[in-house]
Every structure is written in structure tokens, then in C-alpha cells.
Design a protein around this nucleic acid. Sequence first.
DNA 1: GGCGGCCGTCAAGACGCCGTCAAGAACGCC
DNA 2: GGCGTTCTTGACGGCGTCTTGACGGCCGCC
Lengths: 230, 230
Amino acid sequence: MTRILVVDDERQLLRAMSINLRARGYDVDLAETGRRALELAASSHPDVVILDLGLPDLDGTEVIAGLRGWTQVPIIVLSARHTEEAKVSALDAGADDYVTKPFGMDELLARLRATLRRAQAGTGSEQPVVETDHFTIDLAATRVTRHGGADEEVRLTPTEWQLLEVLVRAGGKLVTGPQLLHEVWGPQYGTELNYLRQYVAQLRRKLEPEPSAPRYLITEPGIGYRFVAD
Amino acid sequence: MTRILVVDDERQLLRAMSINLRARGYDVDLAETGRRALELAASSHPDVVILDLGLPDLDGTEVIAGLRGWTQVPIIVLSARHTEEAKVSALDAGADDYVTKPFGMDELLARLRATLRRAQAGTGSEQPVVETDHFTIDLAATRVTRHGGADEEVRLTPTEWQLLEVLVRAGGKLVTGPQLLHEVWGPQYGTELNYLRQYVAQLRRKLEPEPSAPRYLITEPGIGYRFVAD
DNA sequence: GGCGGCCGTCAAGACGCCGTCAAGAACGCC
DNA sequence: GGCGTTCTTGACGGCGTCTTGACGGCCGCC
């Protein structure tokens, strides 16, 4: 399911967008302020952000910068300002598209599809299923099964799942502790390495054949963690 | 170097675009017809296509479809048509952005930068892998493997890794001792050459086929160290 | 030929990080 | 409102890493 975060201070527009997007099968989160938008982005991990620049609390580029500090999520900007300067500064701050108000819903939806298509072409095109000798991870279905004789499903808590997902999507690359904390707990975290120890241990108990001798969730001492699939 | 294919039937606009883009360091290919555009795209593999929809020979969506049949190159559409329907059909045909004429050059350039940024984020533009006869260093994954019969992974401590990374990124250039100390241990270090001796020796033990006769981690007496990849 | 500087090596203590256990707080479900 | 699960937070022991000092060999210089 594709999750969209819509940020705008006009309630009416927010409701209209929500209805239109939900009718087309998207999951929608709503925020009326920049702060709330940054919170929601950190907690719900949207696949794309639709961001009005005329927010009461934060400047538009501040919100963009706040997001770009820790995520590459696509950002489509809505704005009443038509000047080139406004467009250039928003795009260069990290926005992916810039739509001027008033806009047609059909056009916005088309730009949304184009943005999602481009974003997915980069990252999600790989197989979202990772299989090892001992378990299978289906990223799309959010499901993990252990191959212990009869396949049994493994229950993961939301936090455990997010952590596993970040590690798996890294594709065998090493992920540093602060980076994991940013992506799982949000941008304001970065030093709470004890969280990681806690949840990595839990994942190992649920997935590893020998939790005390990890084979898939590897610790790189002093740096971070790595997922290796045989 | 980034290569851009500009397709438009107005010579004047073509020339203006060409000058502007080349002034900013892009390589530019020009085409005045859809057929020529498809030929050029196939032969020169541009990094992005700027496509005017009002071409004499082919319909705009046909050109987009012709490109999308074999490449995911980003396409920025230029068009004099302002209707939503035109935008939707172009975007759904595979375009990444839609700019209506007349447009400002600054805006187009900003959208170009945004599109290129998004496209590069997906592909992992660099090639941070260094391979020698005896081992492979993957800077992105933070991993080193030795080619001793069966490839075995080499475990490096954080300090060892940072030191190796600085030397490798220098690209075969000589790096002085104080410079290495600055980059690995921090700006307040610069005289502790014994640290370097300690960790260079450790890296040689882990990587060199004959640690006593270094082949890759070379000492330049009185100056510093150098990494050479065969 | 003697001397000094630089580099490679070894060794030992201090320190930080990791895995683990445990308990309180927050949340959702019945 | 009670209960179970999940999340947060703290503490502790063990082990690996970092830091630091010392020594010997090689080379160039005087």
C-alpha cells in the first residue's frame, strides 16, 4: 500500500485531497503544520509527501530541509507563489516537483504517479523477497516465515519490522548505528545505541538458528550492523 | 559529464537552450524531429531528455512511448498546451515532468537539477569498488574480501577502516602523515605518527599477501603513505 | 665509522562497546 | 477498568579496540 503524507493548513483542501487520494487506493496521513508534518514523516514513513509551502509555523524550505536531513522520500510542493525564484529555491532545497495553486486534481494525481514511478524505479525494483536457508522475508507482504520443518510464521513487532526492513533494503551494505536510529525511530534520535542492542537481540532470537552466533544479522563492532543473506 | 538531449522544432529555442546548458557544464545533443530524437537517444545515451511535444513528424506521446520502450531515461516535457488532459496523458505515457511554454530558463534548470538528482539517487552513480589481485574493497558496503582461493571476508576495526578509506579515496595519490591523522583521528591530531605505524602495520597484516614486503600500502619515507591498486 | 632520525614491531593498560538481564511506562484490546 | 504486549530505560560483565610507551633495525647524513 502506498502511503501519502499531505501537508496543508487549509482544512478544506486537506479534506478534498484526502477523499480523492483514498478513493484511488492510497493510504493518507494529514498534517496542518510543519512540525506535525516532520513528526508524522518520522513515525509513519510515507512513500511520498505533498507539501504546501504556506504553513503557519515553519518556512517551506525549512520543512524540506528537515525531511532531506534524513530521508530521500519524494516531495511534491504545492504553492500559491508563481515566481521562478520560489520554484527554484524549493526545487533546489530538495523538492521533486512544484505545482502552483490553484491546480487541477487530475494533474496533481498524474504528477504523483510520475513521481512514484520514478522513485520506485530506483529502489523498489528489486525482488522484495529475501530467502535464506532458515527463513524468508517478504518485504511487500510484511511477512517472515521460518523454515523449521513445517514453515511457521514469525510475529514481529512494528519496531522490529522496521529495523529489519532497513537492514534488508540496504542490500548487504553496512548501516551505521545513528543511521538506523534515524530511519527507524526518527531524525531526533541518533545516540541511543542501547535501543539497537535491544532490538537486534530480539530479531536474532526470532530469526537466527543460533542467536548467540549470528549468521545473518552481523555486528560490525564500533560501526553498525549488516544483513547478509547467505 | 551529464549529457542532455534537447528536442524542439524551433531553431531559436534550440540554440538558446544549447547555450544555456553548455554554459552550465552539460553536454548537449540537439534534435528537431521525433525520429531524429529517437535515433540520437539510442546512439548517445543521454542522461535526461528535454522534449517539446509540438513536433512536425511524430505525436508527443509517440516519442515518449518510443523512448520508454527500451530506456528509463528521465524525460522533461515542454509544451504550449496548458490543458490538464495534455499534462495527464504525457505524464502517464512516461514523462517525468511537464513544463508549459512559455517557461523561464531558471525554472527549467531547477527542474532539470531535481530530475537528475532523483535519477542518480536510484542508480548509485558512483563505482566505489576497488579490486586488486589479492583483495576487493567495497567502499559503499564497507566490506573487504580477500581472494585467497575461497573469498573470505576481512574484519576491519573502525579506525582501520577509516584509514584505509582515506588512502583509497586519495586515488593512488600520496597522503602525508599529518593529513592522515587529521582525517582519521580529528583536527587536533597531527604529530602522533606512531598511531599510523601501528594501524598501517595492522592493515598490511590483514590485506597484504606479504606484510613484510608491502605491495599496496606503500610507505613514502619521511612523507607519508600511498595506496596503489596494481 | 659514528650518529640520529624514521619506520616496523611488540606489549600492556585503559577504555568503550556489545550482549544480556530486568523493570517500569505506555499503549491497545477485550 | 483490567490485562497483555510493546516500548523505553537503566545497569553490569566481558571482550575487543584504542592508546601509549619502548625497543631494535635500516638508512642517510655528517
